[in-house]
């Protein structure tokens, strides 16, 4: 079974994680631009970060047989530093048009301040202008109101809910998001967001239409195999296979495929892995390590549902 992890901060993960993801059936990941655990003090850091997610990280993933896409945006936490935010907003349009960028995101609210609101709206306008999908980060505190408000603002700016993924949902927010026609993302992240047993219950109760499962894995305690493990648990507990496929693969492809930057052929007809390839003259093979060449990743068919 093939999976997409549509929310994974791979720059904070290891090559071991890429290998494990590929082995579990993950064929593509989407890396949303976000906060780094510390506030950036200047736009120069932002520029290098955006360059790394559209370039070096994409290259690093390809060396393990995984297609890497990203979203570009100013996150809500750093929107509160106005000088930084202004400078970053200058950078965003040119990065948003690069190859492999599938949405504007993750944008939205953190503490629901006036500055967060300002830059959220500016970026929604940009998404509309560039005709790109949007990935919304919903706040951890006051989640229910923050989620409703995020959708209100999208509607106010005339965005099509079918092009907006509202992420980090839980039992409290799922109904409204689905009822209003948005895509509903769920981050299976230990301790703080959602466990996968709860996720399976949501699938049972609401079905998988417009539901998207992701890991949101990053530099914190998180699980790169969250999508594959959720799929397996769902299958084991009797969720129909077509529903699992929607939530763990197809819906992400439908939602972000609207960018025109993400197609199934990208991984169905992959190039063989060639670690001799270089990125701007630089290899991932530090210190003369041996390249792995020509080992086409093992794509598991639908007949082999159990991930071991």
């Amino acid at each position: 079974m093939m999976f997409i992890d549509p929310h994974a901060h791979m720059i904070s993960r290891t090559t071991d994680d890429y290998e494990a993801m590929a082995a579990s059936g993950v064929v593509a990941v989407i890396e949303p631009a976000f906060w780094l655990g510390q506030p950036r003090t200047n736009a120069g850091s932002y520029l290098d970060y955006l360059s790394s997610i559209v370039g070096f990280e994409r290259f690093r993933a390809s060396q393990f047989g995984i297609r890497h896409y990203c979203t570009i945006g100013l996150n809500s936490k750093e929107a509160n530093n106005e000088a930084l935010a202004e400078a970053v907003m200058e950078l965003i349009p040119r990065f948003a048009l690069k190859e492999g960028v599938v949405a504007i995101g993750e944008i939205g609210y953190d503490e629901q301040t006036a500055l967060e609101d300002k830059y959220f709206r500016l970026q929604l306008e940009l998404a509309k202008e560039l005709d790109l999908p949007v990935m919304i980060h919903t706040p951890h505190r006051d989640k229910k109101n923050g989620t409703s408000r995020s959708m209100d603002v999208c509607v106010e700016h005339g965005l099509d809910p079918g092009k907006v993924v509202v992420d980090h949902n839980n039992e409290e927010t799922v109904r409204e998001v689905l009822d209003r026609g948005f895509w509903a993302g769920f981050s299976i992240y230990p301790s703080t967001k959602m466990g996968n047993a709860r996720m399976v219950e949501i699938l049972r109760q609401y079905g998988a239409n417009r539901v998207i499962v992701d890991s949101a894995c990053d530099w914190g305690i998180s699980e790169v195999l969250a999508v594959a493990k959720t799929a397996r648990l769902a299958l084991q507990t009797g969720i129909p296979e077509d529903q699992v496929r929607l939530a763990c693969y197809q819906n992400a492809l439908e939602a972000y495929g609207q960018s025109g930057q993400m197609k199934e052929e990208d991984w169905l007809n992959p190039q063989a892995i060639d670690q001799r390839a270089v990125y701007e003259g630089n290899s991932i093979l530090r210190g003369g390590r041996e390249p792995v060449v020509g080992q086409t990743p093992n794509r598991r068919g639908m007949d082999n549902l159990i991930i071991e």
């Binding site: 655990g37 510390q38 850091s45 290098d48 690093r60 990125y279």
Partner: peptide, 26 residues
């Protein structure tokens, strides 16, 4: 080195902060 050449010294300021504050806390 980060795997790619950084475009500005400002990025190093944030990198040094990460090495001296954020990573020890993690």
């Amino acid at each position: 080195w980060a795997g790619f050449d950084r475009a500005s010294a400002d990025c190093f300021r944030d990198y040094f902060h990460q090495l001296t504050v954020v990573e020890p806390a993690r």
